[in-house]
Design a protein around this nucleic acid. Structure first.
Lengths: 214, 214
DNA sequence: CTATACACTATACATCTGTATAGTAACCAT
DNA sequence: ATGGTTACTATACAGATGTATAGTGTATAG
């Protein structure tokens, strides 16, 4: 990675501070005003250079859309940006397609501390309210809120949400060598195996939230 | 606090998600596009209403400068999305006194959506990282984060944190009529009963957060 | 019935914002 | 000396953006 000049470090530090304080990146003119540039181009040049060096990102031509790339390096700005929260849609049952319009079928929302759950804020992350005790063997009980990530490759032993008979159910993903993958319910009272072929894996479990009834 | 309409909750939820995903608040036209408004004014009206109700802030006439009034502050109740969030201290083991100095011994912090967990934001609410499987019978496993409320009266069957041999352990609170209350471990491999008399109940479980190792 | 809040459509406008062109000046390596 | 990078000034412009005016329809409360 290319190193940043002193001036460039100043600029990216100001951008980071503005993001932390104001919640949004500064405009080029705000950068220019802060450093008393008489020309916006000076700020634009700096931002362009920082983009070129890979420490700034974001779509072009968009106001306040600058994002600081979390870089590892000497200059990495020590930004203590608190905890990152994501607001995930909660489903009672996941609609079949899991397309764009997820929000409309969502039952509500849950704010999740990403650092605590150790997950990245994928737009395809969602929560599912568990019904029944088919996963009691994995200590997932009725009423639990399971956080799932869509589009992730399930591995052997992962808990997944699958669409069975037009209903979302939690199952354990079983993949033994030389055999086709199956789904297993973690409760002796439930049918043990389902073929995976015709099924749709809607998400892989990454976390769980339980509310204790008081 | 004025309540938000359903539509307003949708709008602020979208704003929050955009901030989380893109790093910057959406413009009025982006909001309008997302909800398929044919007029920007619809989005402007919603934002104005959310500003009036105190859940949105930020300087006017500035692009992407919307901020959701932060709820993750200290113990002061605030709201994001009409949701109240609290930042709870996490302990590996609860210090004996459970006095003021909790933050210093705290291992970390977890932001919790109070509405999801259905708890009130008591300053005496905290989290405990579970070690061992003494509560496996209640489907609490090693590594789980148990949210507890201090000072609450435990009732029969509640899961409580108790100080035993200078260590915090989770137990089930047992109170049968005509007998003194006891503590019970939910694992046959553990001693079943403890007298309550000399013990200190440090908190009553109100919620649980599980992180799935990936 | 009237008034008020809500949820919009349609159009317009001043300003904000990113980007561009055309330079100046200092420094550094070849 | 020559070309390249850095660090700016000055001016300009198209499109993005917040805000405003005018109006429609639908609830809900007094």
């Amino acid at each position: 990675m290319k190193t940043l000049t002193h001036r460039q470090q100043d600029v990216i530090e100001f951008i980071g501070q503005t993001i932390d304080n104001a919640g949004a990146a500064p405009t080029l003119r705000e950068i220019a005003a802060h450093f008393r540039f008489r020309s916006v181009k000076a700020a634009a040049d700096h931002v362009a250079a920082l983009r070129r060096k890979g420490v700034l990102a974001g779509p072009p031509r968009r106001a306040r859309a600058l994002r600081i790339v979390d870089a590892v390096g000497d200059w990495a700005t020590a930004r203590a940006l608190g905890r990152r929260l994501a607001r995930l849609p909660v489903y009672g049952t996941i609609p079949a397609g899991l397309a764009e319009d997820r929000r409309q079928e969502a039952r509500g929302c849950v704010a999740v501390d990403l650092d605590t759950l150790g997950i990245r804020p994928t737009p395809r992350t969602f929560a599912l309210e568990v019904r029944g005790d088919s996963m009691i063997g994995r200590h997932i009980v009725d009423g639990d809120l399971v956080v799932l990530e869509h589009g992730k490759m399930p591995r052997h032993g992962d808990v997944v949400a699958a669409l069975i008979d037009n209903e979302s159910t939690l199952k354990t993903f079983v993949q033994e060598r030389g055999r086709p993958p199956c789904l297993k319910a973690e409760n002796p009272r439930y049918p043990k195996l389902h073929p995976v072929g015709e099924l749709v894996i809607q998400g892989v479990m990454v976390g769980l939230i339980r509310k204790v009834k008081v």
